[in-house]
Design a protein around this nucleic acid. Structure first.
Lengths: 239, 239
DNA sequence: GTCTAGTAAATGTCTGACATTTAGACAAGG
DNA sequence: CCTTGTCTAAATGTCAGACATTTACTAGAC
């Protein structure tokens, strides 16, 4: 794979890193492939070697690449990617052609983890956590009816789930909230946005909110599982 | 906080990064504190500015620091740390005075997550996963009796739990295995290494292995919870 | 054939200079 | 008094070039 298919870029090393990372995430290179050399990348995008090195440092830190002096840069296999790195979440967000394998893996993770997290949230939530959840939920309600607000709706959706993770009051679970954005944003491109679909989703989210508010851990677990069943349908994982 | 309390270092930027990161993890600086300037660090450790910048880049990527041109480098609060970054796990491993707040947070996470993971493992494990688990378990058995093999025993312990996460056959859960090493290594410094303690731990691990081998998800969940109850005692979280 | 030296090519490092951003001091003008 | 603008110092960010180190490959010597 060459660089020719990639669009030009403007801006610093961050933009360049995003560009290259998204190309990798979209599968433009296969694991084990050799990645272009620093000088070639710099020549192609007309940036200094420093910028290239900074960008490649990010990709290496995220586990996407492996660099060895003398040999060059190689693409690592998907199992080595640091899916929990916030930078990865940022790169995955907004990527239309995210690898279906990744979408399924993240969904499967959420399906097993989020009920537990919701249960913890029901036990640990403070007043401010409830407020965050309510605020996100009312935002979802307001943006559910109009089609053009679907991006905004997704943001409130992310905020709702992120608030759930934060309400668990555990530093580790909280970090995992980063994964929510790419997972939920993938819904925009794959779901039909039918009104009854969104209504159903809203109802299920309301059950989670109610369960956490009433500090009922078991109910929260069940409700979170129901939300994710709905999500699976919208993601096209089950029919 | 100054740099004076830190030991000298040998080796490249990685060693320097580890040194500074461990100082941060041990709480030598408070959130919001200004971190020493690049030139001061370089002068103190007698390394080039390049090395310093490379080290600081790692710490920034891990969410430990925030750097702004003109202002300087500031220490971020613990909630912003990327606890799931493999580099963080590496830095935490072997740190004797790991912040008790972190130890508890990681333990609480494992207590809520690992039963689920063990359940998944019971459903998804392949032959090679079982082999890994058995190999790690027999290693734990062999090293349980002698006191001087406790470090080796801890390695097998890590391998056992890591094999459990891998057996879930989920890319995200698998990434989380990195957290196990610091958590389990903390046991070495805090537990008494009494023989009956290790025997009890071994028995509980065996139950997890048996449950996964017989593909009994519920039993695996319960057994994993029992292992972690034992861990909590050894970590001094409960008495 | 096998070992060895040599060479090319890639990433890693150093250095010095310069650019950019920020915070603060200070003075002019309303 | 307060605001505004400008200047300066200090910190991180960027660049360019030379050099160091590692790696893979090749060509000979024996």
């Amino acid at each position: 794979m060459t660089l020719d298919a990639l669009p030009p870029h403007r801006g610093g090393a961050e933009q360049l890193a995003r560009l290259l990372a998204q190309a990798l995430l979209a599968g433009h290179w296969q694991p084990g492939d050799v990645f272009p050399r620093e000088l070639d990348i710099g020549a192609h995008f007309d940036v200094s070697r420093n910028q290239v090195r900074n960008a490649l440092t990010s990709l290496t830190a995220a586990g996407l690449l492996e660099r060895t002096a003398g040999r060059g840069t190689m693409v690592r296999e998907i199992g080595d990617w640091h899916l929990l790195d916030p930078l990865m979440s940022e790169w995955m967000t907004g990527l239309v052609n995210l690898d279906p394998q990744l979408v399924r893996a993240i969904y499967a993770f959420r399906y097993s983890a989020e009920p537990v997290v919701a249960g913890l949230a029901a036990q640990e939530a403070q007043a401010e956590d409830i407020e965050r959840l309510e605020s996100a939920f009312t935002g979802m309600e307001k943006t559910a009816s109009s089609v053009e607000a679907r991006a905004e709706h997704a943001e409130y959706d992310v905020a709702f789930h992120d608030a759930t993770y934060r309400a668990s009051h555990n530093l580790v679970w909280r970090q995992m909230g980063h994964l929510l954005r790419p997972s939920i944003m993938a819904l925009i491109h794959r779901s039909q946005d039918r009104t009854d679909t969104l209504d159903d989703s809203l109802t299920r989210h309301r059950h989670v909110l109610d369960a956490i508010r009433s500090r009922n851990a078991n109910a929260a677990e069940t409700a979170a599982r129901e939300v994710l069943r709905r999500t699976a349908i919208d993601l096209g994982i089950v029919s």
